[in-house]
Structures are given as C-alpha cells and as structure tokens.
Design a protein around this nucleic acid. Structure first.
Lengths: 231, 231
DNA sequence: AAATTGATTTCGCTG
DNA sequence: CAGCGAAGTCAATTT
C-alpha cells in the first residue's frame, strides 16, 4: 500500500462525470492497483475512487499543465469498463509504501441471521406457550423467516427485519395471503418482528391484523449463553 | 489526518458485533476523530470504521494484554449511540500526521440531463426518420422529457431515466393518457428509454404497448462531439 | 425533522 | 454466473 498526501485535483469519467477542485488529500494506492482519494473528514466513503481491476499509470505534465502548476498526472483506468480517474498532482507532501499482506477478513455477528437464531431459541418471546415449527419455512413465493404455533396450536408466521419498514409488512402480507389458502396451515397469524419498527410500518401492520414485536437485541443476547464472546 | 500502519486486531460492538484477527493494516484517524481500518485490497469500504461524531482515546494495555503482545489499546466511542471500536495495537510500523484542511467537495455532473441532451442530439436512435419536436414538452401534469415524431409524422413521447423502474412506466403512462386526449397530438406512442431497464418495468411497459429502449451511455457519448471534455 | 430514494452503491448468498 | 436481498449502508431530496 502506498500512501501519498498531495495537493491535487481529480476528475472522474465513467458512469457519471465528477470533479474535485484543488485541495490537499490522501491518495491511497492499494496492492490490487485500486486508488482511493480521501479527505480529512466525512464518512468512510472516499471522495472518489477506482475499484479493481484497474491499472495506474503516471505521466509527465504537458506544457500547459506544467504552467498550471501540475507536477505529475496519475491515470487510473478500469480494466473492463474503461472508466477513468485522473489525478493532477500539484505538490507531494508525503509519500510512503508499506507491505501489509493479505487480510484474514471480518467476522460478523448480529445481523438478520443472528436475530433469527436468537428468536428461534427464545420462541417464547412471541407469547406464552409458543412453539417453533421451523426457521426459513419454504413457501411458493419464498421462505418465511420463522413458522411457529401459539398455545392453541394455531400457525404463526414471523417476518424478521433489523429495521422494520413498510416493505417488510408487504412481504409478510403476501406470505400470509398464500399460507392462509393452505388448509394445513390456516388460519395463520402474522408477527412483524424487528429491532426498530417505523411508525408507518406499525400502522400498516396493525391495520392488517399483524402483530408488531420490537426485539431488544442486547436482552436477547443476554438470554443466549454465548453472549460473552467479546468481553 | 493521522496515518498509522500497525499489526493489530479490532473489535466492534454496536448495532452488530464484528472482529478482525491480528494482521497488518492501515489505521486512518481523520480530523473529526473518526477512524477507518483499511486492508491492502478489496473495495473502497474499510474493513471496519467508526463514523463521526466520536472520540478516540488511547490506553496502556493491562498485564494480560501486555503478555499477549499488545502495546496499546485504542478505543473509539460514538458520541450518541455508544457504539465502540477497540483496536489492540501490537506493533506500529509507521506513524505520521498531516494537515489537510477542509475539502471543497465533489462536483457531480447531472446524468439524466446529459442523457436527455445526448438523445435529443441523436434522435435517430428512436428509429429511422424520427425528428425532434422539443425537449421538456409541457403538459398539464408536467413536462415530458422528449417529444418527437416518427417517419410517418406520428407523435412519440419519450420518458428518460438512468434506471428504468416501474415508477417511470407509470409516469409515462399518465402522460400518454393525457396526451392522447389532445387531438393535435393523438395518437401518441410511448418510448421508455433508460441506461438500464428492470425486467418488471419492461414487462409492464410492453404490456401497455410502450416500447423499451436501452441507452448505451458510452456509445452516445462517443457520438457526441464534446466527449473530449476531460482529455 | 422524518421519510423516501438513488448509489460509480458494496457484499454475501442461493439457485 | 446471475439474480436478489441486506447493509453499522450513506447521502440527497422531498414532505
């Protein structure tokens, strides 16, 4: 990885055109040839970049460019799409290269899959006497996240989201409509479960007789015995 | 901006949990206190990060951590959500700080506007013998992107999108319905033109007798004589 | 301020 | 390999 701090301007020509005026920025050249242009603030997203596979070439400025104060021109060209990123370097304030090696990669925990696992393991959160039928219960239009039965033996279909939005309610509604046509399952009640349920989604769900359940991830992790992994 | 190359492991605890095993990485500390952990490959997305507003504190390792080879512990805490990123630094290979100043920010060129201009200038892409009536043809419910006439003199209304979605088809349908009531224009044919047309949108459009036209932005730019703007 | 929508989205899984 | 859904999405626009 090569790190360069430089005063530069940047032009991108690809699916759109974009321009960065002259300013001091970090240019990060990764081992795969990709280039990231970062400012000293904002989000984790670079101001501009070129994704691999791509190749970087450096050029001498022509006379006009030299007159404009440009000391070097970097061109990064995408190998497949011919998108091009052009960096006009005016002044280099820092330049260093580092050997990093391959990264073992991120281990994630706590996404929708994990929520599903936790709720399946604590199916009583749906209400007293509930029992799990199965996770990822397959229907003709896709898998329902969780199928359970309530204390009276009636089917309960659960749609799980990290963030409960209108879309999720629509999705569950489609499942319920289909499942309620199956005499083996009907009547099927719906539960919309999420860490956070937006007001609109709640309104729509309740209007359709779908129960809303806000999940407390930390509390559920507390019920789970493997919660001490990180600490 | 501070740039540190270090052998380190990273743990994140927030909306999800994530872990990065020991490896050599770039730690980028931005002026707003945010931290980015980058590997030497992959996309522009960091392996892990903490968005502003947040604060970074560094700590001495305790005895157990020192025995494990940790020389410093960085803790980055989000100011609002209490999300936390912990970096266990084993070895620092590079450490430098740089003054960058505020970035003037990215200037994007409009894409839909540019597409409209390009199609208007190459109206023959609609089919042989087509002529442009005008761009932004005004109707009671808003402007139609392009109004043209085919070789036989019949009206053609074009709705342009970068990404052709259901919404765009509905919009064009409304225009067509209205315009077909105008005896000066009727019959008006519809063309739904986009860089990318989603299958659902295509099905709906064709079901309504609307022609779909996929635009090749690069090819159109090639036809345009101003394509050399950047070079 | 909340909600909606697009993104040079990226990323991971499933068929 | 393509297609689809989720993301610690982010960011801009609209309501």
């Amino acid at each position: 990885m090569r790190l360069v701090i430089a005063r530069c301007s940047v032009d991108y020509a690809g699916r759109l055109s974009a321009h960065l005026p002259l300013a001091t920025r970090l240019l990060m050249v990764k081992a795969d040839g990709s280039l990231l242009v970062h400012s000293d603030g904002g989000s984790y997203k670079p101001l501009n970049w070129m994704s691999p596979p791509c190749t970087l070439t450096t050029h001498e400025p022509d006379d006009d460019q030299a007159d404009a104060g440009i000391t070097a021109v970097w061109k990064v060209t995408h190998s497949k799409t011919a998108d091009q990123l052009v960096v006009n370097v005016h002044e280099v304030l820092h330049d260093s290269a580092h050997e990093l090696g391959v990264d073992p990669g991120l281990i994630k925990d706590g996404v929708e899959a994990h929520l599903q696992k936790l709720l399946a393991e604590n199916i009583g959160l749906l209400g007293d006497g509930h029992t799990l039928v199965r996770r990822e219960y397959m229907t003709a239009i896709g898998p329902v996240d969780i199928l359970a039965r309530d204390a009276a033996g009636r089917s309960v279909a659960v749609e799980l989201k990290r963030r409960g939005d209108i879309d999720g309610v629509e999705q569950l509604t489609r499942y319920l409509e289909l499942m309620n046509r199956d005499p083996h399952l009907a009547p099927v009640a719906g539960v919309f479960a999420a860490q956070e349920i937006k007001p609109q989604a709640r309104t729509l769900a309740e209007d359709r007789g779908i129960r809303c359940l806000v999940l407390d991830y930390d509390a559920m992790r507390g019920l789970d015995d493997t919660h001490s992994r990180l600490f």
